[in-house]
């Protein structure tokens, strides 16, 4: 019985991890790619870790809960790094297929949001690759 549960958790986890990276490969702009790893991969690894906790609790003496620690840590940190990445991308004015809202306010770093949609992907890929981060004035 436990073995079926473990197999299910492991397969779900591995599939979700795979789908998260597939999103990284398939989706078209950076902001869309951000969705794959932050959600699918986090839950995928979470269920793998829970499977590992169950496995070691049943096979060794005593319960093994410290995998929960990594799960909790990942669930807390994944949104934080996603938020920072999105902020960095907005700061660099990366091309996006999504429209900015009309009444857009300036962000914390004072980046110009209006320039968002004027860059073509070709321009962006050539310019942002060699982009040297500058200090805010």
């Amino acid at each position: 019985m436990l073995e079926y549960l473990l197999s299910f958790l492991i397969l779900t986890g591995a599939t979700l991890t795979f789908i998260g990276s597939l999103g990284l490969l398939r989706l078209k702009d950076f902001y869309m790619r951000l969705h794959g790893p932050t959600k699918a991969t986090t839950l995928g690894v979470g269920s793998l870790l829970i499977a590992s906790a169950l496995f070691f609790s049943s096979h060794n003496a005593g319960i093994s809960l410290h995998e929960v620690l990594i799960t909790v840590f990942l669930v807390i940190t994944a949104p934080v790094s996603a938020h920072l990445l999105a902020k960095a991308a907005l700061h660099l004015n990366l091309h996006s297929f999504a429209k900015m809202p009309a009444k857009s306010t300036k962000g914390e770093d004072g980046a110009d949001d209006d320039a968002m949609d004027t860059q073509t992907p070709e321009e962006k890929s050539s310019s942002s690759d060699t982009h040297v981060p500058r200090k805010p004035v």
Partner: peptide, 10 residues
């Protein structure tokens, strides 16, 4: 399907 991207200055 949502990611929070930026908090406005105020």
């Amino acid at each position: 399907g949502t990611v929070s991207a930026r908090l406005s200055e105020d």
